[in-house]
Measured scan of single mutants.
Amino acid sequence: NITNLCPFDEVFNATRFASVYAWNRKRISNCVADYSVLYNLAPFFTFKCYGVSPTKLNDLCFTNVYADSFVIRGDEVRQIAPGQTGNIADYNYKLPDDFTGCVIAWNSNKLDSKVSGNYNYLYRLFRKSNLKPFERDISTEIYQAGNKPCNGVAGFNCYFPLRSYSFRPTYGVGHQPYRVVVLSFELLHAPATVCGPKKST
């Protein structure tokens, strides 16, 4: 009989979030998941669920729940959905087409922007091929755009693959930082360890 609440607040209220290319994953298990708490945590810009209804979450049980978190800019949030393409979905964080879970995003301009520009958040701009779903690539190998090998040196047709967002508070919403948490629900042929409040007794 599990009584402890799932530590969603640790994920959502973390002081620092990860850069999207090096997104963070927390496995959540053996706890009571009260998803209604999430609705009250922040004024969400996005709370979209796929393959599951957000209002039914509190009635369900899962084997595992994974919470992935990272920062992107406002106009990239739409890429965090099944079947999307674009720089983020292709080279940084890719959801599977049959994704079961929820994408939660909110504006973090007050936390993640600086007047002089916050350069701490990076994204991958160049990659030889698209990522597979939930693949994480943290390599910093020089990207070869031409025929000549780069031998690890940046220059003509040889690019450092990561680029930094420079978040400034005066930017338009599309270029402001957004914190994203992706909850993916895993149903294996194994005992369910993460249940809503109704199912945990």
Score class of each variant (00 low, 15 high):
T3M: 11
N4L: 09
L5V: 13
L5I: 13
P7W: 08
V11L: 11
A14W: 05
T15A: 12
Y21H: 07
A22L: 07
R25E: 01
R27W: 09
I28N: 04
V32K: 12
A33F: 15
D34P: 08
S36D: 10
V37S: 15
A42T: 10
F47Y: 13
K48M: 08
Y50M: 04
V52M: 11
N58T: 11
D59S: 13
D59A: 11
F62N: 07
F62L: 11
Y66A: 09
D68A: 04
S69T: 10
S69P: 01
F70D: 00
V71Y: 01
V71I: 07
I72R: 02
R73S: 07
R73W: 00
G74M: 03
D75S: 11
V77I: 10
V77E: 02
R78P: 11
P82C: 01
G86P: 02
G86F: 01
N87Q: 11
P96V: 03
P96Y: 02
D98S: 11
G101D: 00
I104F: 15
I104N: 01
S108E: 01
K110C: 06
D112H: 02
D112L: 04
S113Y: 02
S113T: 04
K114I: 08
K114N: 10
G117C: 02
Y119S: 07
N120L: 09
N120S: 12
F126L: 06
R127K: 07
N130T: 15
N130G: 10
K132V: 10
P133N: 05
E141Q: 12
I142F: 06
I142V: 11
Y143S: 02
C150K: 02
V153F: 11
G155V: 03
L162S: 02
R163H: 15
Y165S: 00
S166M: 05
S166T: 07
F167A: 00
Y171P: 00
P177D: 00
Y178H: 12
V182I: 08
V182N: 00
L183C: 02
E186N: 14
E186T: 11
L187F: 12
L188T: 15
A190V: 12
G196M: 11
G196A: 12
P197D: 12
P197H: 15
K198R: 15
K199H: 14
S200H: 14
T201W: 14
